[in-house]
Computed example of a mutant assay.
Amino acid sequence: MAFLDIRRLRKSYGAAVALDGVDLSVEEGEFITLLGPSGSGKTTLLMSIAGFVKPDEGGIVLSGIDVTDLEPEDRNLGLVFQGYALFPHLSVRDNVAFPLRVRQLEKRAIAERVEEMLALVGLDKLAARKPRELSGGQQQRVALARALAYSPRLLLLDEPLSALDRSLRENMQRELKRLHRETGVTFIFVTHDQEEAYAMSDRIAVFQNGSIVQIGAPREIYRNPVSRFVAGFIGGNNLIRARFSSERNRLAMLGRDLPVPPHFDPARHHRDGDVSAWIRSEDIEVGGAEAGFEVFDVTVIDRAFIGTGERIVVRTRDGEELALIIPDGAAGTVTIGAPLQCRIRPDLIGFLLPD
């Protein structure tokens, strides 16, 4: 049995289904991220694990013990919210000590544990400050220290970095990975940010309409999305409609009539001729014929500098819009409204099961 075992969890609010028979197993010491758009069920699942939401059906087993009906305070879990929830009138030291005092630990044990936690998150020199005297990143580290102070079996994090600016968010991602590595605590992290999920997770569970539609390692999900929703939501993918001709064994796509790539399976990847495909933005190149590539003609409809390169949006002859990410300066004299040739290696085109 896994460290955390969730089986057929259901939760509805009237006619709205928040969780639709969710199954999830988490191993001890794992860092797993629940990823999905707003309203997809990820926070409802997190709050169900914490005990703040009571499921209508299903069960939650933690370390072999059924905790489905236990109160939150009886589960020994840590929880970090988006808004930090620090006590404004207490010092950093007293905020971290609070859950230990509630558990009536001895004063010496509390003092030792607080100093250990403040050193762990690098705030030992700021222990006397109040939350208002800290930056957003420092406040988040106080919240993490407080959640870890009483040695929870599991740390639940509900979009804790979304209020931070980009540089702080990236710093806190590294901090979370370090804390996870050094403490060995199991982390379950909720976010709608794909890059955040990729950067930190051992595995990602992608949510849609109250269900987990794909779960796997970050690279696996990035390289092999199982549906149009996942391919579109995880970012960087162009979704394309195509037509398959079994008579000619060809694919009509990108304004061309292309030979069928070896990894396209006619028995699996089409229905009544319709095919769903995806291409990553960074896999499309600007340029003409080259060995191993298929070339297609487009018209440029937008161009934007994005710091690390340029994002060019083009329209194919059959009306598909594609985004390309290319290195800064590689676009040369490309102008909006101008014709352009692009190319793609056929083995980089992904195919999805029919909707």
Rank of each mutant, 00 (worst) to 15 (best):
P72N: 06
A291R: 14
D257W: 00
L19N: 09
G122P: 01
P55G: 08
K107D: 10
L144D: 15
L118M: 04
V67C: 09
E182N: 08
K125Y: 02
A231K: 07
L134A: 02
D5Q: 14
V121H: 05
D193N: 15
G309D: 13
S91C: 10
L156F: 07
F3N: 07
V206H: 08
P261K: 15
L35R: 03
A119Q: 12
Q214Y: 03
T44F: 06
L156K: 08
G216Q: 04
V92Y: 08
S25M: 11
W278M: 12
G255L: 06
A127F: 05
V275R: 04
Q138Y: 03
L155E: 08
F207C: 04
L70M: 14
P55S: 05
L258G: 05
A119P: 00
P266L: 10
H180P: 09
D56Q: 12
K125W: 01
A127S: 12
A331V: 00
N224E: 10
E290Y: 00
R268N: 09
I306S: 06
V206N: 12
K177R: 15
Q194V: 05
S246W: 01
D318T: 05
R343A: 04
E112R: 15
N209A: 14
R241F: 07
E285V: 14
F264Y: 12
L19V: 01
F207Q: 00
R250V: 01
R141L: 07
G58W: 05
L62M: 09
A197W: 01
Y84L: 07
D193L: 13
N95L: 14
G59S: 15
E57N: 05
F229N: 03
R280F: 11
D158E: 06
S246P: 14
A252G: 08
D5Y: 13
R250T: 07
T43K: 10
L348S: 11
A119W: 09
E220F: 11
S281E: 15
A267E: 06
R243K: 15
R280Q: 11
I284M: 08
P339E: 07
R219I: 12
R166F: 11
L144Y: 04
A289L: 13
L340G: 04
K107C: 01
Q139G: 10
Q341S: 14
R7M: 06
E115D: 15
R129L: 15
G39N: 08
V67M: 12
L79S: 04
T299F: 01
V102N: 03
V298G: 08
A217F: 03
P259C: 06
I65K: 10
L105S: 10
I240N: 02
L105A: 03
D318G: 07
V53E: 09
D74V: 13
R248V: 14
P37I: 00
D302T: 03
G273F: 08
K177I: 04
L239H: 13
F296A: 04
